[in-house]
Computed example of a mutant assay.
Amino acid sequence: MTLAPTPPPRKVIHIDMDAFYASVEQRDHPALRGLPLAVGGSRERGVVAAASYEARRFGVRSAMSSATARRLCPALVFVPPRFDVYKAVSRQIRDIFARYTPLIEPLSLDEAYLDVTASPSGLTATAIAQAIRASIRQETGLTASAGVSYNKFLAKLASDQNKPDGLCVVTPRKGPAFVEALPVGRFHGVGPVTAARMHKLGIFTGADLRARDLAFLQEHFGKAGEYYHLAARGIDHRPVRADRPRKSVGSESTFPEDLVEHEALVAGLLPAADAVAGHCARQGLAGRTVTLKLRYADFRQVTRARTLPAPIADRETLLATGVELLAPLEPVTQGIRLLGLTLSNLTGDGDDPPDGQLGLEL
């Protein structure tokens, strides 16, 4: 029997624009250059969609409430978002990507995966990443950071390594050591709550994660355990999927103590409303269907959904709708350990396709 040849390792690039919305505003308005800048609502209950690097030095981050951002940086300058401009620039950038490969998986207006394994250019993946960054700078006046590796997981980690305006290449020989040295909080899919759970188990780095076997990780993290097991070894089999549309945006929180009181439940929904609103703001998305997810102390799970007459994306409406969906389930007779909100029935550019090992030379 003749075995099928082993497919060649992938060559994957992750491109991430540097402080995209804020950088566009500073490009178009020279008076804003060098100032701590936030794109988003300046109202007390608004949300920061993006922050310039000058603002990030004060701890200002996207999806943060405007009130918190202003407390951290009293001199913060707020500007309203111009999604039509961001979308136009994003199309310019995607046109640059298309010169090198048709396999482009946009994650948002400002980042994408590219599979250049069979690029018609004949260039190495590193040379392609360098050429793309140079073209972006020349044609848009903006900077981008790039990660180059043999899978999506490592390429995304690498693009964040030398930000802003940086390039990082993780070859198959370097992959395992690169992962082992990283804090688990840097892993895609490991949020603050999961990182805290890992820390309690003595898992602080990729090396610590790799030292735990699959059974241990599945026991403590369920289905995600297999992902963590593979990620700790620098393994990711996901292909780059061109023009894959996003169907929903969601966020959820697991609480260290079960919630019972109404005020605590509303407060428990706030992080999800913030995260979804911030994500929608960054991608220019809105949606009509809000879904509430909750999990009781006995792990029984309930979801409730409502479709609104018009698309929404702001934190206030998301939170208010979530509270309305929660009302029929109150008073709570037993504690709630998890709350989440999802926005679906999406509209916007982020939901549409664009006009969505050894010896590998990277």
Rank of each mutant, 00 (worst) to 15 (best):
V266W: 10
P353R: 06
D115W: 03
R27S: 03
A69L: 12
R197H: 11
P102C: 09
D28N: 10
S121H: 06
R27P: 12
I104R: 06
S66C: 06
P328M: 09
I104L: 13
K163E: 08
P5D: 10
K87W: 02
A313E: 08
F83H: 15
P8T: 12
R241I: 10
H14V: 05
V24I: 15
D351G: 09
A281C: 05
L209N: 02
G350H: 07
Q92A: 01
L319D: 06
T347Q: 14
E111M: 01
G41H: 08
V190F: 00
A158I: 09
R133C: 14
E54V: 09
V170F: 00
S159L: 08
V60L: 13
H237M: 07
L358G: 14
S121K: 04
R295C: 02
A98V: 08
R99Q: 10
A232G: 05
Q283L: 04
Y53V: 08
I96G: 03
V266R: 15
D110A: 00
E252I: 04
D351R: 08
I235A: 05
L319N: 06
K247V: 11
T289L: 13
S248Y: 11
S66Q: 08
A69F: 11
Y100H: 15
V302F: 12
G122C: 12
A69G: 06
A51Y: 06
A281V: 04
R82M: 10
V290Y: 09
R241A: 12
D110Y: 01
D18N: 12
Y113V: 04
D165H: 12
A50H: 02
V260E: 09
L123C: 02
Y296S: 10
E180R: 15
G34M: 12
I13F: 08
R212F: 10
K174V: 11
V323I: 14
L343V: 03
L32D: 08
A88W: 02
S251F: 09
L341K: 01
I312A: 07
A277F: 07
G250P: 10
G175N: 04
A49Q: 06
S66I: 11
G225N: 01
T140A: 05
F20N: 01
R210K: 13
